[in-house]
Amino acid sequence: MFPKTTNLSFILSPDTSLWIFGYGSLTWKPNFEFSSHRYGHIDGFARRFWQGSVTHRGTPDTPGRVATLVKSDKEECWGTAFEVRGEEQIIGALQHLRIREGVQGGYEACYVRFQPIDDSSTPMQVLVFIAVPENSLFLGWAELSTMAREIAAAGGASGPNCEYVFELAEYMRKTFPGVWDDHLFELEALVRDFVQSNCICCRDTRTIADECLNSHSCHRNQKQESIIPLEGTVGSQTTTCHKVLTY
């Protein structure tokens, strides 16, 4: 059981800073103002795509899958810790995360020990949001191929579910080139396979082509099956990832 953090009022003094650990979309899309950031890891946890998303990356009819943390004594999870300093930044970040992670996401806040990538640095406490199994959106374990099929078919207000996986995998690969995350990278490869095989553009190019992620028109496959356009954003560009309805 994770220790819950329900009272955060003590951190609201003007000269206090709070560190928030991101291991999913927060790594590449925090969407709150922060003063600094540090790279590193937390021990005893593993990143898993076991949390359902019915708002940001899915719908109630077609839930997406997003990352959460699960206890795993021999593993570690790498990510980014963001420092929010002073009352304005702290309140702004917590108000944003309360909606994004709590109300809409089903996550709960707790503190964990964070080790900066520089081993000579002192470990510190960071606030992290974790989707515990008791929450109503928790999907839990499934075969990677099943999860990949679900992710390839889902999308929500923040964009295609596949975009979440691709952006996170790319961020981890660039930020931590010496770290291999089996679950994330194997899932990424399977999701790409499903997207490629069900989009005429990607199937013809044998890759997730830029014109698929950045196009504004719908590519139909040779059987003229209906395709779902799921819009999101990558940088400043609007993206549309085209999914065949029949997986």
Rank of each mutant, 00 (worst) to 15 (best):
C201H: 14
I91Q: 10
S197A: 12
K174D: 00
D193C: 09
R149V: 01
L187C: 03
M124A: 13
T233R: 15
V191N: 03
R100F: 01
S13C: 00
S17M: 09
G106N: 07
M147E: 02
T16D: 02
S25L: 07
I117W: 03
R47V: 12
T6I: 10
V84R: 12
F34Q: 02
F82T: 06
F185T: 10
Q222H: 13
G178R: 04
A67K: 13
I20A: 03
L26P: 00
R98E: 05
F129V: 09
R113W: 05
I20M: 08
A131Q: 05
Y23S: 01
S215T: 13
S217A: 11
W19D: 00
E101P: 02
V165K: 10
V234P: 00
I117H: 06
S121M: 15
P229N: 11
G92A: 06
R203V: 06
I99M: 06
A154I: 10
H56L: 11
F138H: 08
S53C: 03
G102R: 09
F82S: 04
C77V: 10
T175F: 05
T27A: 00
R100W: 03
E87L: 13
H216S: 00
A81N: 04
E108G: 13
P116D: 11
P3V: 08
K71A: 13
F114H: 07
C212N: 10
P63I: 13
Q222F: 14
V234F: 08
C110D: 00
W50R: 12
H37I: 06
N198D: 03
H37M: 13
E167M: 10
W141K: 13
F166A: 01
G79R: 08
V132I: 14
H183S: 06
Q237C: 08
R206L: 09
T55F: 13
V84L: 02
D182W: 04
D182Q: 03
A189F: 03
D73Q: 14
T246Q: 09
T246C: 04
G40W: 14
